[in-house]
Every structure is written in structure tokens, then in C-alpha cells.
Design a protein around this nucleic acid. Structure first.
Length: 218
DNA sequence: AAAACGGGGGC
DNA sequence: GCCCCAGTTTT
């Protein structure tokens, strides 16, 4: 795919995804420039729907809004605040640990490099790249299941794992699109090009989509 | 009753 | 690479 086709693809994705008035885009924008909030809400969001995690994040931040405060919360307090995100074993336990690590190792600040972020227990490539992209305004490709699935569905990459997708997209997409592509594909993936029963009738990709029986592969 | 959900860790 | 984790909603 050459530069012109990529430009067109990104533009059509933008239109199909509903542009800036899509709730997720708005929500993400509101959290911008607060890396700590982005980090915590992303940990909460793992395998959980976004509307749920948005509310949970607000409730949790009402209890404590800094790493110092949050590391003192008990698992039970956190569990109550973040209901019903699920996966409490991981989340309610990891959040104070992450906060403690921030305080002890990073002067109570969220790191702004991939390596430092990945050193936090419970933070993987998806979370780390989202913090870089949204929290620090760096161009970073953040690959979740939506980005992985659709990038392959569109034939943009041919990869097996999310990590391979991340590197393949770095080779394929011009850097100026990296962060935009993240947000776009998440909206597009949740709203239009869903894992099952995709809404092809309201998709505007047209001939840019291979349209090989959409149900036959992810 | 299954599958799905902005994954990550341990091995 | 594979397996485990584990709660709520959607199909």
C-alpha cells in the first residue's frame, strides 16, 4: 500500500468510525495530559468495556487521585470503587502495587519511556503504548484485539500476534498516523467492524475492504 | 450455555 | 509458543 492509499484508508476509517463525536474518542480526549489517570483507567479497562471503566475510574479517583494516596487503599476499597469491571484478583491487587512502584522508583510520576512503563507489573505493551500516546503525546502504536483483528482483516498486515502487528504497522503506517490510527480503529472496531456480525452496511471503506466472508476469520 | 471483552504474566 | 486468570454482559 502506498502513501496515497494509506491517506485514503485513514480518512475513510475516520468517517466510518464516526469521527470526533464518538464517545470513546471524547472520553479519551478528556483524560489527556493526565498520564496517571490514563495508566490507571487502562489497567481497569483490560478485557472490560469502556463505558464501565470510565465510571469506575471516576469513582476510584474520588477516593484517591495520586499514587501516594492510591497505594494506601485496601484491595477491598478498590474492589468496591471499581465494581463492576471484573477481574478483581488482578486489578484490585495490582493498582496499589503499581502506585507503590511509581512512588518508590519513579518519584511519584508515570514514566514516559516504553522500557520504564513495561517494568511495572501489570503493564504490557498495549497499556504502555497507550500511556505514551495519550498521556505524553508521543506517536505510538497501541495494539489491542481490535487493532490486531482489523489490521489483518484489511490486509494492512499479515500477523499472528499483537506484538507482530505493532512492529508491522510501524513499518507500514507513516509515523504521523500512529496515534490517530489507535483511536480510530478502537472506535471502528467496537462500533462498525465488530468481531462478529460486523455492520458492513454502515461501513464506508468500500473497495478498500477485501470483504472476504467477514465471519470466516478474525 | 457460550462467547466476548482496548491483556498480561508465568512458564 | 501455550495456558491460566476470572466477572459481567451479550448473543
Amino acid at each position: 500500500m502506498d502513501r496515497k492509499e494509506i491517506d485514503l484508508l485513514v480518512h475513510r476509517l475516520e468517517v466510518s468510525a464516526g469521527g470526533a463525536d464518538f464517545p470513546i474518542v471524547t472520553q479519551l480526549a478528556e483524560r489527556q495530559h493526565d498520564p496517571f489517570k490514563i495508566l490507571i483507567s487502562t489497567v481497569l479497562s483490560l478485557r472490560t468495556k469502556d463505558e464501565v471503566t470510565g465510571k469506575a475510574t471516576e469513582k476510584l479517583f474520588r477516593l484517591a487521585s495520586t499514587p501516594e494516596g492510591m497505594m494506601k487503599l485496601s484491595e477491598e476499597e478498590i474492589r468496591q470503587a471499581i465494581y463492576p469491571v471484573g477481574f478483581y484478583r488482578n486489578k484490585a491487587r495490582q493498582i496499589p502495587e503499581i502506585c507503590r512502584a511509581l512512588v518508590e522508583r519513579f518519584f511519584s510520576r508515570v514514566p514516559d519511556t516504553l522500557e520504564d512503563l513495561l517494568s511495572l507489573k501489570g503493564v504490557g505493551r498495549k497499556t504502555a503504548n497507550l500511556v505514551l500516546s495519550l498521556g505524553y503525546g508521543q506517536e505510538a502504536i497501541c495494539v489491542d484485539t481490535h487493532v490486531h483483528r482489523i489490521s489483518n482483516r484489511l490486509g494492512l498486515v499479515k500477523t499472528k500476534t499483537p506484538e507482530q502487528t505493532e512492529f508491522a504497522l510501524q513499518d507500514t503506517l507513516p509515523r504521523c498516523y500512529w496515534s490517530r490510527y489507535n483511536t480510530l480503529l478502537v472506535s471502528f472496531g467496537q462500533r462498525v467492524c465488530r468481531p462478529v456480525s460486523p455492520l458492513c452496511s454502515s461501513c464506508l471503506l468500500g473497495d478498500l475492504c477485501p470483504r472476504i466472508s467477514v465471519t470466516s476469520h478474525r
